[in-house]
Design a protein around this nucleic acid. Structure first.
Lengths: 228, 228
DNA sequence: CGGCCACTTGATCCGACTCAACCTGCGTGG
DNA sequence: CCACGCAGGTTGAGTCGGATCAAGTGGCCG
């Protein structure tokens, strides 16, 4: 039934790590001793897989990352998108619980988990900061459960556009760094429903679709009402 | 549309905190200096509300607690049930993000948040333990997002029964400490769909319903397959 | 220029919701 | 002790929102 999602097939040769370099960057303002290594991924490239060792913590520099779970038959639920400035990949235990992939060409900084862990055991405020990051993700997940469990397609789409706008700077002009299918798998819908919803917003003058990836929020107030 | 949920009205006089006493109980095995105060709540009684100060952290002794979000029109999403042994109520920041209520007569231990916070700043392993609790809740939320976004009604119900059985001891005989409406609001369904689903499991010989609150998992393997 | 991929749009279908009746057990008051 | 009311649960009939299946359309890359 809901089978859609997930390209099988082997990864095209084009999709390989694209660059590698040393860019010093502090994980926390207060602890400049931890540095990140810069790394790039092409569109749809896997950063880590569910069940793999979680050796690194990541910070998005540019692009965007999806983290998701898949069922055996291919149904996929994206738990969240990680946008520039966001950290992701630090999960409880030694194994990743989600798969992470770049939704578009993406640059990240990597931090060794072992370093971060040992920092957390030495530095109380760093430990607290890590805890707060996890708590922030939990907060997002709680909001998203309400959306997935109880909101209509239109409400989900409105909430999505508001969320993206807010996280991308709140300018009202949103450049979506992901496909319709990604949006659908994030919102618990099909890509057709996402497409139709955007078209309806456009027809009602609520948004303007410059092209599939660029949306102007014309009546943001209306969207916020729809989103609840 | 989905309006169901939530009894308005003032709380009946019967629903008042029912007992109060001093029961020393350590929050962490390693830190016996932090003690909990015992407290009881009647069925449907609010423990704390969304937006209130989170002054306490709670541990369920007996009964069960639901934590949820509600929309203006009454649509409700229960994020999780807290069963005996579980901690709940420690959230990021100073305000609760969810409402907590007893789903049935419930006894809890209360811990002062300020004590726990200060412990976390002194004791690295306690801080880590708190972090792990939050991470555990996040893990649950991620699984639940997959359920809410992508699973069918039957799959949700199967997953629910398996989850409850596991968390209540894995005996295969489940005493549900919540109503059909609570289950529906947890699974993103209506109570009628929950009821019908249980009846169908019964008709297929997968479970036996002793009464509405007592379910025997006759073919647990089958349920696990359904749940994915 | 041709093929492909992402997206859009249309037609139809179906799983879960809505509305409604009824059943059952329990607490309350006569 | 029984009659009643009520809350929670079950079951049935009909509807509908979003999924599925199926054509297009347009832009981009080779």
């Amino acid at each position: 039934m809901f089978i859609q999602t997930v390209a099988p097939s082997t990864r095209p040769a084009a999709l390989r790590p694209q660059s590698f370099g040393q860019t010093p960057a502090p994980l926390f303002a207060s602890t400049p001793e931890i540095l990140g290594t810069s790394f790039s991924y092409g569109r749809d490239e896997e950063i880590y897989g569910e069940g793999e060792d979680n050796e690194f913590v990541y910070k998005v520099v540019s692009g965007a990352v999806r983290t998701y779970k898949v069922m055996r038959d291919g149904r996929r639920q994206i738990g969240g998108f990680h946008l520039p400035g966001d950290y992701f990949g630090f999960e409880l235990g030694t194994r990743h619980l989600l798969t992470a992939e770049a939704t578009t060409d993406t640059k990240v900084l990597l931090f060794k988990r072992s370093q971060i862990e040992s920092l957390a055991t030495r530095d109380v405020s760093a430990a607290r900061e890590l805890w707060l990051m996890t708590a922030g993700q939990l907060r997002h997940a709680e909001d998203h459960m309400l959306l997935l469990g109880r909101k209509t397609a239109t409400e989900r789409l409105a909430a999505f556009l508001i969320e993206m706008d807010k996280r991308l700077g709140g300018t009202g002009v949103v450049e979506l760094p992901m496909s319709r299918r990604d949006i659908a798998d994030y919102l618990g819908l099909t890509l057709e429903t996402v497409s139709r919803g955007f078209s309806q917003f456009q027809a009602s003058g609520i948004v303007q679709l410059i092209d599939a990836r660029h949306v102007v929020l014309v009546k943001r107030r209306k969207l916020e009402e729809d989103a609840e």
